[in-house]
Simulated assay, not measured.
Amino acid sequence: MRKWKRVDTADGPRFRSALASHEAALLESLVTSMLGMLDDRESSSPADELEEITGLKTGHTRPPEDETMRRLLPDFYRPQHDHPAGSGTAESLNSALRSLHEPEIIEAKREAAQRLLKTLPVGGGRFELTEDDAHAWAAAVNDVRLALGTMLEIGPDGPDRLPPDHPMAGHFDVYQWLTVLQEYLVLGLMDKK
């Protein structure tokens, strides 16, 4: 992975980089897996009679049971302390918000991931992104990092180094690579050199 180079053109900024063939294949595999997880979540949504009448798509009212999906689709509201009306109030609020907004969130994540896949250089090599493409890449790579970080049990203070003989050590290296890829792209988007 090379650093991203921002090039200002008459049609707006462009972001150039290059990926080795194995990097492109790895990124394609990770993003495709994440899309599969999002599709599974969406397809398991219960049927809603109101959706059939109004066309308003609704989603789950309960958070995902899987920790990785819960990280990608977290609760909307987390009380800082006990609510006077009890914990049912926060739960009820989260259920309503999730039902209304989860389909939109899944669709936004899907669109970013599909845009990354569409602009990913097949077999690796040099490539160039528009600003919209670069934002989609940043979002999709972030989602993959969140998912992988959850699987690796990386906490809020950042990752600890895994011993080389740990079965997930290779995955940790992938997490670090995704972090660098995203950081360089965000710096390019911010026009930082």
Rank of each mutant, 00 (worst) to 15 (best):
P121D: 08
A134T: 04
I106K: 00
E107G: 01
G86I: 06
D165K: 05
D173H: 13
D82L: 10
G125Y: 10
V174E: 06
E102I: 01
N94I: 11
G59D: 07
F127S: 07
E91Q: 02
P79V: 07
I105D: 10
P163Y: 10
T68S: 08
P103Y: 02
M69A: 08
R110A: 07
I106Q: 00
D66Y: 01
H135W: 14
R62A: 15
L93R: 01
D82A: 11
H81Y: 14
Y175G: 04
H135T: 09
T89P: 00
R70C: 10
Q182N: 14
R98V: 11
A113D: 05
Y77G: 07
R62K: 12
A136G: 08
W137I: 02
W137P: 00
S92G: 12
H171R: 14
E107L: 06
D157S: 14
H171M: 15
V144H: 03
T130S: 15
S92P: 00
G155F: 01
E67T: 11
P84W: 04
A85S: 12
L97G: 01
G124K: 07
G155H: 01
L116H: 01
S99V: 05
P64Y: 12
R78T: 14
P63A: 13
T119M: 03
E128V: 14
T119W: 03
P64T: 12
L146A: 09
A138L: 14
P167A: 15
D157W: 14
P103C: 07
P163M: 13
P167C: 14
P156I: 06
V186K: 04
V141Q: 05
L73G: 05
V141P: 03
Q114S: 05
V174W: 06
A140L: 02
P63Y: 00
G124E: 06
T130G: 12
L185T: 08
